[in-house]
Design a protein around this nucleic acid. Structure first.
Lengths: 189, 189
DNA sequence: TTACGCCTGTGACAATAATCACAATCGGCA
DNA sequence: TGCCGATTGTGATTATTGTCACAGGCGTAA
């Protein structure tokens, strides 16, 4: 496997020597996804985590027939469903490509079975997990602390990529409002 | 130190032999708290995690003069501010006794310095951290997915202890509504 | 017992967001 | 170029929640 972005991202989390790196990479596979193609479906137990090389992954939830977006992961980002993985319970979320995408899939069980004795690999996996949880917590504090308009402006300021890449309709449920309300928030500068 | 609930709680997380346990317990201190007494103040960097033996701990922050409750931790529960700890940044939250309480305080840095070579102690600490993050994520998803009334009924079903121990006024901000709205939700069965 | 503080319930009204309906715009693609 | 479907903007109306005000209940302490 020869992928600079992936290797750079791993080394940013834990700067490991090539021997450890190649062991880790033996548990990773590359996948090209079409828009809408899922890496994790509702009802499956999550056994992987995902690195986005191109495109983006969208985590969403179906509430009474209405799609609610919980997360968007862009290039150089990791994502997963940690709760499903940790508790070995069926995922309530789907994780799928929001557009044509290239992702690397890390096999968590395979890493645990084969390389958990490698301290740097184990550290890498733990750090990714903690980062995912802290990121999820951060997004949720938007909801606890801010009003819908404040949430939009927070994202405008702190995560403008979202506004450039995600359609208003998709963004609305991520912010926790209807698309009409988001349109009106936006029209008021 | 002789405290059954604490030892049982530790062993429920990781069933370790007495040697490891006593090393871990050397980094724990017992504290009796009055109602309102804090274990972590806004602006401090969090260096501990907390086990509740009696009473409960309340995590809250001040938004424009209004108190917003983020968490209640009852007997046999652990809590902390992981973000502050992980990033060594000042806590935005206060963690204090919601009523007269007895808590055990784990010194995270001391454990890391003295006992991180003990695999079971290290495992214990990591598991507690992951559990705290998963619990926090779970509460967050209440906000992302449910309406205020649905949140109340979710708690009614999944965490009725909260309704028994926490006053309506305190619970309201935890659910993300005013106390008047919560009172009306409750009056509609 | 009474007085006081704290908590809860509720009415009236204002503010905010959802819902429904439809028009306008945009971007592929024949 | 012009069509078509998807997306966005916007008005009218309804539903929900917040804000303000005040009454009543409950426990504690003088």
């Amino acid at each position: 496997m020869d992928n600079e972005p992936l290797i750079n991202a791993i080394k940013t989390v834990v700067d490991m020597p090539d021997e450890d790196l190649s062991m880790l990479l033996s548990c990773v596979t590359r996948h090209e996804l079409k828009k809408g193609q899922a890496v994790l479906e509702v009802g499956q137990v999550c056994r992987h985590f995902y690195f986005v090389d191109e495109g983006y992954l969208r985590t969403w939830y179906n509430k009474d027939g209405v799609v609610i977006n919980l997360n968007f992961t862009f290039e150089k980002g990791f994502t997963s469903n940690l709760r499903s993985f940790k508790s070995r319970s069926p995922s309530e979320y789907t994780i799928e490509a929001g557009e044509k995408a290239v992702v690397y899939i890390f096999d968590w069980d395979k890493i645990a079975a084969q390389h958990i004795d490698l301290p740097l690999v184990a550290l890498f996996v733990r750090r990714v997990a903690v980062r995912l949880l802290l990121a999820s917590e951060e997004h949720s504090e938007l909801f606890k602390i801010y009003t819908p308009a404040e949430r939009y402006h927070f994202i405008e300021k702190n995560n403008p990529r979202l506004l450039q890449r995600i359609s208003l309709s998709q963004l609305a449920s991520y912010i926790g409002v209807t698309r009409e309300t988001l349109s009106r928030i936006r029209s008021k500068n």
